[in-house]
Simulated scan of single mutants.
Amino acid sequence: MTTAEGPEAQDSLFESGPGEKHLLENVPPTLVHATLRLQFPPTYVIVGVYRLFTDKLLYVPAWDKCRHATRRGAIVGAIWAALTFSIQRKFIQIFLAKSPRVTGLSNETIFGYEVPFSVTTYAALLLLGSQITYILRFFLSRNIRIARDRAWTQTVVSRGKGPDFWQPYVEEWDVPPVVRLEPAWERFVKRWLGGWVGLFVVRRVILFPFNFYPFVGIAVAAAFKALGTAHNLHRPYFEAKKMNDKQIATFIEERKWDYRLFGFAAALLEGLPIIGLVFTISNRVGAAMWAHDLEKRQHFVAAQRDNRPDQ
């Protein structure tokens, strides 16, 4: 995932966003593809997946940290599946299949679409996949956090950058947007009611019927999580730059659609049953790659401001 001049050719990626003053008139031809990646941040999610699965310095430490917990969780999940699958399938057959107006289920179709196997079996597999994911997440909770942090650090190191690479925040817009900082109690309420609790209510109650469409429920949930997921993935970036709440809010507001698109793609992968846990690590890799390019842009803006003649 590099240009013809190698990874460091990305140092010149400085195409201005909406409302910004253009800092460079032209982009070198060799940087066109890299520039497009910067302009369309979801590509960094793909970069993260590619690097995690191809770079031994990333996937070996991650697997070493998570393999024992993964095996324990897989064993418990397999036992749970063997003991409860028939019960859950019967539950769905009795209660859900008898309420097609609520779930869109019938004996042969899902919202009018035929499936190659029993509808109740399909629904039970979806439900079971979600439960096994929660079991794995329980066993991996601590180790996977460590694996994500190491993935971020190793990605930054692979770019040849040390702690001094992250410089103080520089405002890139001539006229930055006005953002309103919420009181601490409002942020707390939004974080919990609008965070995993709110998402649980949305996914398990409001959007429950959509979960029986292949990937539709995951996509709708990803749309709700997009901005929060992107913010969380770039938290190490904001901490490295020692940005305050106002600077973070302004930075995200200036790139709100970039963060929403990146967050949607990242949340979509993380929402996949079981395998989504792997993507929580690859997304951290992709976020670090994006942060690297954003920081190069910050360096360029700072240099331009330092060289600007006094008005």
Score class of each variant (00 low, 15 high):
Ala222Lys: 10
Val49His: 04
Arg305Met: 06
Val49Thr: 09
Val47Glu: 10
Glu25His: 08
Phe262Gln: 06
Ser282Trp: 08
Glu171Tyr: 02
Lys225Glu: 15
Arg159Ser: 11
Lys90Met: 14
Gly198Cys: 08
Phe251Val: 08
Glu8Gly: 01
Ile274Thr: 04
Ser282Glu: 03
Ser99Ala: 15
Leu36His: 12
Phe264Pro: 13
Glu270Cys: 12
Gln247Tyr: 05
Lys256Tyr: 14
Phe300Ser: 06
Trp63Cys: 08
Val49Asp: 03
Pro41Leu: 06
Lys242Asn: 12
Phe238Glu: 05
Thr250Arg: 12
Ala265Ile: 00
His33Arg: 13
Leu52Ala: 05
Asp164Gln: 10
Gly129Trp: 04
Gly286Gln: 06
Ser158Gln: 11
Arg137His: 14
Phe95Val: 11
Phe212Gln: 00
Val205Ser: 09
Phe264Arg: 10
Ile79Lys: 02
Thr250Glu: 05
Leu57Trp: 10
Leu207Val: 04
Ile110Ala: 07
His68Ile: 09
Pro7Trp: 12
Ile252Gln: 09
Ala219Ile: 08
Pro7Ser: 07
Leu272Met: 13
Ala34His: 06
Trp196Thr: 13
Asp149Pro: 04
Phe200Arg: 12
Ala97Lys: 14
Lys56Val: 04
Asn307Gln: 14
Asp293Glu: 03
Lys21Phe: 11
Gly228Ile: 11
Lys246Ile: 04
Arg137Pro: 05
Gly286Thr: 02
Asp149Ile: 05
Gly194Trp: 00
Tyr259Ala: 02
Leu277Gly: 10
Glu25Tyr: 06
Glu8Arg: 06
Leu207Met: 05
Leu227Asp: 09
Val60Phe: 13
Asp293Thr: 00
Ala219Cys: 09
Leu277Asp: 04
Ala302Met: 02
Tyr122Leu: 10
Trp63Tyr: 14
Thr84Pro: 08
Thr2Phe: 15
Phe208Pro: 04
Gln304Asn: 12
Gly195Val: 06
Phe117Lys: 13
Ile248Asn: 00
Leu38Tyr: 11
Pro18Arg: 00
Val202Pro: 06
Ser99Asn: 15
Phe91Asp: 12
Lys90Trp: 15
Leu23Ser: 09
Ala291Asp: 03
His299Leu: 13
Asn26Gly: 00
Asp11His: 07
Leu52Arg: 01
Phe165Pro: 01
Pro7Leu: 09
Pro273Ile: 03
Glu25Ser: 10
Leu57Cys: 04
Ile79Asn: 04
Ala249Tyr: 08
Tyr134Ser: 10
Gln154Tyr: 15
Ser12Pro: 12
Thr30Trp: 13
Arg308His: 13
His22Ser: 13
Val156Phe: 00
Ile144Gln: 07
Gly73Lys: 05
Thr70Gly: 14
Lys65Gly: 05
Gly195Leu: 06
Ile92Gly: 12
Glu25Pro: 02
Thr70Ile: 14
Asp164Ile: 07
Leu207Thr: 02
Tyr213Trp: 14
Pro209Leu: 05
Gly286Ser: 11
Glu25Met: 07
Arg191Ile: 00
Ile206Asn: 05
Pro177Met: 01
Ala219Glu: 02
Gly162Ile: 10
Ser141Met: 13
Phe14Leu: 14
Lys256His: 11
Glu239Trp: 08
Glu171Phe: 00
Leu269Phe: 15
Ala147Val: 11
Glu172Trp: 14
His292Arg: 00
Arg204Gly: 09
Asp310Phe: 07
Glu5Ser: 15
Ser106Ile: 03
Lys65Met: 15
Leu136Asn: 08
Leu181Gly: 02
Asn143Lys: 12
Pro163Lys: 05
Leu127Asn: 07
Gln10Thr: 13
Asp258Met: 07
Pro100Met: 03
Tyr213Ser: 00
Ala82Gln: 04
Leu136Ala: 03
